[in-house]
Design a protein around this nucleic acid. Structure first.
Lengths: 347, 347
DNA sequence: GATTTTTTTGTTATCGGTAACAGTCTGCGG
DNA sequence: CCGCAGACTGTTACCGATAACAAAAAAATC
């Protein structure tokens, strides 16, 4: 590694071009105030000299940067990778760069991160979920920069939120399963306290069944959300005194692990037991039978959020709260109502 | 969103504490030069006033930041998420922050990104793979900051590299399959030109079989690396005039899709056809039969790279090139040697 | 107690840019 | 031929910190 003797700075370009520093600054930023001729000449020269302006200095002088800081619980879950993917394109088109953090579902960690990020004078901040420490909320409220809360919604966002109504999504699934004739539902998730959103969905499912006077059996595997957790969850479910007739999983990953467990245990899906996931991941596309799941518009959600952020950065305020639609996809892992008279979405 | 009237700056703290700006700076950074008494007093006051130093200004003055910029091809592949996860912990312990970019396997995009990142005066840069544009290489060589190339290795890294010898990994797999008695291998990957590493592995497999005078049938599905691509690849493989007796997949995701396709097509694995993946992802843990695959030490790789980077940032040079070990995991999707009659070149 | 040393604290210049304002140079009407 | 708007270009102050050096205060030495 060779130490660069001295990186070219704006002054060098100015001297070489025989103009003032300001002219170079204006020319390179495309700001009004230089004649087209000198602008082009300066630009060509700068490119030739390999000059790259220091964003550090630029952002400091302007008291703002083009950074959008994004915090997600984890990157291991494709869901967040897809949301970020959806955002990134729109953001980068608008000249905004992204800096990503994973909080591992720890509020405290997120709080520390937010405080650190503020010191970069970012253009905007993106958090996952709507549950944050009071400190984080007040800090951001007074920071004066656009803040987006993603994946979940609330009536009282810090600034803006785009996400799902998880409780409602759960309720819809529960109601659907009820209609299909299921009566002994179980929910299989991971240890509570980490993923708040999944718990809202669980409660939604429970609500739906409670209206029919039926309880939801909650099973929380003490593990990371993974295929294995779903597998393990099924084993626990089958050990219950009353065997459930339908299993609702935290997400499609767990559901897949669960399907494998059912198979390993000699249970036939959907005849012996129903299975429902959440998210609509592409893994379900290659399964012998399509998984009943709730398809979440992850990329679109990211894109929507990004558009609102870009607008906000430019000073245009849009909605404060956007609820994305979720499509309940009837697959072949739940039985159609009344066995076979009704058509299912699976051909 | 309320506009912050005026964020507290170091000067405010200094005035409030009745000391000079420098004392505050020193006290907060824990740098020598302030008495313990005033240090604590200043710190307490700063915390109370909610003062957060501007990293923009700090980094500018110090001509370096604590930012480590990481470029990966994609976050949709758990592999890179895991590598990043492995790095992050070590880096953050060392007080380094990470900024992540996805290049989508486009060299040009990576090149632009590198140029942009340089403007932030990062502490270090991390790239995926060892294939970059000449521009990127020379820019980084002269940038004077530590550069890590990950996931692949080369004899001539820009600065340092930690990764796998993909060609060798492929060769080892090919040799193993050859020993098991397979004679008509096929490789199933995605359209070439995007993922250079997978092509190196494919060539390695081909090398091994070529030594026995056997050709490797390459199949490149024109799609993103996904379950579906593997599924589709199997359909193409089965349509060949000579049906392969073993399928080597780009990675475990494709392999899984492939397994589903085999099942759907009524082929029994491993009796009718062998299947091998790459990576050792956790999906294989819940399958009825374990996948034969090459387990890559992703988290460890990230950790190793991170340690070297931290050392480099502190001015300590370590190795330039580290090759991580890969464990060939014999699963149940390839048949053990000599269990059934060894097929000769024609059956 | 005076002087040297060491510690603590303050000053000044600088990092690499940008905003706001001040000139300079046109072209054109009166 | 003067004066002035309008289009360029340059000057100065500052963004919010840090490094290097200078000064003041406290501790140590003789």
């Amino acid at each position: 590694m060779v130490l660069d003797p001295k990186p070219t700075k704006i002054e060098d370009v100015a001297r070489a071009a025989g103009v003032s520093i300001m002219s170079v600054s204006r020319a390179l930023r495309g700001v009004e105030g230089v004649s087209a001729g000198t602008r082009d000449r300066i630009r060509a020269l700068a490119a030739e000299m390999g000059y790259v302006p220091s964003r550090l200095a630029g952002s400091l002088a302007q008291a703002t940067s083009n950074l959008v800081c994004i915090s997600v619980p984890t990157l291991f879950d494709a869901v967040f990778a897809e949301i970020i993917g959806g955002m990134r394109e729109t953001l980068s088109h608008a000249g905004l760069e992204t800096i990503i953090e994973t909080s591992d579902y720890h509020q405290a960690r997120e709080a520390v991160w937010v405080e650190r990020m503020i010191t970069w004078s970012p253009a905007a901040l993106v958090l996952s979920g709507v549950d944050h420490t009071d400190q984080t909320r007040s800090l951001l409220r007074s920071a004066g920069i656009p803040v987006m809360e993603l994946w979940d919604v609330t009536d009282d966002p810090i600034d803006m939120c785009v996400g799902l109504d998880h409780r409602l999504v759960g309720f819809d699934l529960g109601a659907h399963l009820l209609r299909l004739g299921y009566r002994r539902p179980a929910y299989i998730g991971i240890a509570p306290g980490r993923d708040w959103r999944s718990e809202k969905r669980r409660d939604g499912i429970a609500d739906a069944f409670r209206e029919a006077g039926l309880p939801l059996e909650p099973i929380h595997v003490d593990a990371a959300p993974s295929f294995e957790a779903g597998y393990e969850g099924v084993l626990q479910a089958l050990a219950l005194t009353t065997r459930p007739d339908v299993l609702c999983f935290l997400n499609d990953h767990l559901a897949f692990g669960g399907l494998m467990a059912c198979e390993a245990e000699g249970l036939e899906v959907p005849n012996d037991i129903g299975v429902a996931g959440f998210n609509g991941l592409n893994i379900t596309n290659v399964l012998p039978r399509r998984l009943t799941t709730s398809a979440t518009p992850r990329a679109l959600m990211g894109k929507t959020a990004a558009r609102m952020l870009v607008a906000a950065v430019r000073g245009v305020r849009t909605e404060r709260r956007v609820v994305m639609p979720v499509a309940l996809e009837e697959g072949a892992t739940t039985r159609p109502q009344l066995t076979s008279t009704l058509p299912s979405s699976n051909k």
